[in-house]
């Protein structure tokens, strides 16, 4: 495992350095907000998750010790946990389990300028674990090992989630998931 590019910044935050706080927010807030927005499909809830994630960063900064995961992977895990809390609350799940099966019915054809909303709808309709895998690897550009670590699954399991998620998206967005 290589050096953690965030480790020094976290140490300075723990020591009470205001410049380090500014640098951390500039570096991580866009990533965490994007992660939450794509997981939740709701900009206001994504902002709440981003704020809560940073509260945890500030609280843990003075005691941060690198374990098995890099700091970036750890904050992704924190943000994802907060997203799942909201998904469970929002959808009033009768059990603690989120659905594993995606609703792959094709979406209506896009009208010009509406493609982004359509992709958002498709992302929200696939199973949350598949969405999580795609968001981490495709949009957040975590490596396969980092994404698998953040999701606490094996790399093989991650690849399976990615492939199933992309097939479901393909079926919904282009109606040709079987090719």
């Amino acid at each position: 495992m290589g050096a953690d590019p965030d480790e020094e910044l976290v140490r300075r935050i723990g020591a009470g350095d205001p410049a380090a706080v500014q640098a951390m927010v500039a570096r991580k807030l866009p990533r965490i907000l994007a992660l939450a927005a794509r997981m939740l499909g709701d900009a206001a809830e994504a902002e709440d998750v981003a704020q809560e994630t940073f509260v945890r960063i500030w609280r843990h900064a003075s005691g941060w010790r690198r374990g098995h995961a890099r700091f970036d992977t750890w904050i992704h895990r924190v943000a994802l946990n907060l997203c799942y809390d909201r998904l469970r609350r929002r959808r009033e799940w009768t059990t603690d389990e989120l659905p594993e099966v995606a609703d792959e019915a094709p979406l209506p054809d896009a009208i010009p300028g509406d493609e982004e909303r359509r992709v958002n709808q498709a992302l929200q309709r696939i199973a949350p674990r598949q969405r999580e895998a795609i968001v981490l690897v495709y949009y957040q550009e975590l490596s396969n090992i980092e994404a698998a670590g953040a999701m606490q699954v094996s790399v093989d399991a991650l690849e399976s989630l990615l492939a199933r998620g992309r097939r479901a998206l393909q079926a919904m967005l282009a109606g040709d998931g079987d090719d």
Binding site: L29, P30, A34, A43, A46, V55, R59, S62, E116, L173
Partner: peptide
């Protein structure tokens, strides 16, 4: 198709709120 999905950059208000919380939380934790 996936690239069409863009997310907004953080607003200045959100950035300020996150930074403002840092001073209190770090001090209390220490």
């Amino acid at each position: 198709m996936l690239d069409r999905h863009r997310v907004e950059v953080p607003s200045a208000a959100l950035h300020r709120a996150v930074v403002a919380r840092a001073a209190t939380e770090v001090r209390q934790e220490r």
